[in-house]
Simulated assay, not measured.
Amino acid sequence: MTTAIGIAGFDKKFQEDADPWGTFANRDEANKRRAIERAMGSRIHGRVLELASGNGSNSRMILQHSLRLVACDGAPAAVALTRRELSDEPRAKVYECALPAELPVGRFDLVVAAEILYYLPPAKLARLARNFDRLLSPNGSLVLAHHHVRFADAASQPAGVHDRFTAMLPFSAQKQWTFRTGRWVVDRYQRAR
C-alpha cells in the first residue's frame, strides 16, 4: 500500500511539474472546474477562500466570482505557481498555510475546497471542520469538489468524504446543489444562521 502523500510530496510534485495532474489542459478537469463554477452560483461573493489552490488552475475562475480571493496551499511550490497565475490580480492574495493548523484570519462568504479533504487524516479533517466555525460567515457557502473513487496516496477513503466532513462541522450545513460523475462530485452547502 502506498503511503498517504503529505505537503512534502505535493511540493516535490509541483517542483517537478507545474501541472502534474493536467488540471489546466485535461477535459475532465475543465468539466470539474465548470461544475465548481456552477456550484458557486451566479452572484459575486464578497470574501472567498480557496483551500489547497495547487497550481492555481481554479483560482482565476473563482476570483471572477469574488470581490476578494484568498488562496492558500501548504506546498511552497504550489503557492509560487498560484502566485504566478494570479500575479496580475490585485484582488487576490496567496498564502502558504498547512491545513488545518494554519488558516487565514477572518470570515469568508464562500470557501472552496477541491481535492484536499481525503489527503487529511481523520484527526486533521476533524480539526479543519471545527475551524470552520470561525472561518465561514453566517449564511456562508461551502463548495466541495473531490474524487469519490479510491486511489493509493489518500489518507482516507475518498467515497463519502463530503458527508464525513460536513457531519463534523460545528454548525448545520444544508446541501443545496450537487453534480456527480463516475469519478468526482461537486457539492454546495449553505451554513444555517
Rank of each mutant, 00 (worst) to 15 (best):
R127V: 13
D153M: 08
E89D: 14
S42M: 04
D11S: 14
R193S: 07
Y189K: 07
R188F: 08
A52I: 12
A78V: 04
A35L: 09
R107N: 01
L49N: 01
G6I: 11
A75L: 04
W21S: 09
G22R: 07
Y119F: 15
Q190D: 05
D73W: 07
K32P: 04
D163W: 04
T3A: 14
I5W: 07
K13F: 07
L135C: 04
A113N: 07
T3Y: 05
I5K: 08
D163L: 09
R91E: 10
W21T: 09
S66Y: 06
R47M: 01
N131C: 15
Y189C: 08
V70N: 01
R60W: 10
A4F: 09
V105S: 12
A152P: 06
A173W: 03
E115H: 07
D19V: 15
L51R: 08
F151T: 06
L144V: 02
V143H: 00
V161Y: 00
E37P: 00
F151R: 09
Q64K: 13
G182V: 12
L81Q: 13
R188Y: 03
H65P: 01
I116N: 01
N139H: 02
D28M: 05
I44C: 12
C72Q: 13
H146M: 01
D187Y: 04
R27F: 14
S172D: 11
L136C: 03
F151I: 07
N26L: 13
L128E: 00
T82E: 05
S172N: 10
A77K: 11
L136T: 03
G41D: 03
S42N: 02
G9F: 12
I5E: 02
S57H: 11
Q64M: 13
A154Y: 06
A39E: 01
L120R: 03
T178H: 11
V48M: 09
C72K: 02
N139V: 03
A155F: 04
T178N: 05
M40Y: 00
R68N: 11
V79K: 04
D133H: 08
R91A: 13
Q176Y: 00
A167Y: 05
S53Q: 02
I5L: 13
P100F: 05
E29L: 10
G6D: 14
L99G: 02
I36H: 00
L51K: 06
Q64I: 03
R83P: 00
L125K: 07
R127F: 04
E29A: 15
R47N: 09
E102L: 14
D11N: 15
R150S: 06
L120E: 05
E96T: 09
K12M: 13
N55S: 12
N139T: 04
L142G: 01
L125I: 04
S156V: 11
A4I: 12
A173G: 09
K12I: 10
V161F: 04
A159L: 06
E16S: 12
M1D: 03
G41T: 09
Q64D: 14
R188E: 03
L81I: 13
S87A: 15
K12S: 14
M1E: 04
Q64R: 15
V143N: 01
D133Y: 08
C97D: 01
D28H: 05
E96C: 09
